[in-house]
Amino acid sequence: MDTMIATNDPIIMVDDSETDQLIAKRCYQKSILQNPFLTFFDGPTFLSHMDSVLHKEAPIPALVLLDLNMPIMNGFEVLTSIRQHQVFTHVPILLMFSNSDNPKDTERSIALGANGFQVKPTHVADFVAFFNSLKG
């Protein structure tokens, strides 16, 4: 994966599942990463945060982990909105899939400007290893 975290800016996770957020936070804490870990439950809230970033009220995220299946706005729609801003062109965004059996999802992710995709791990060790792999 060529997406490396090179700053101490926050890592943002957008996922509608409180459980997934909890699991991710716990696994993140077990990793070697020290960046702040922010979570949002839906796309609009995340986009609202990104408006603050635009107004320099918040730092540009070091990485965005974007869930695909979410209410109100799915991951693709959120990704499209982010990439519309020139400022966020280089913000690393990874789409998080529940499954890897639909090649159309991965193709579409790349087409819309995602830096990569990741199937949600089923073991803590795998999740931790994933976070560790992001360290530059």
């Binding site: 699991i23 089923t122 073991h123 803590v124």
Partner: peptide, 15 residues
């Protein structure tokens, strides 16, 4: 599938 995966993860976290 999602709940199953989460159950695995939660059990793993407990472990």
């Amino acid at each position: 599938r999602e709940p199953a995966r989460r159950m695995i993860m939660l059990a793993d976290l407990i472990c």
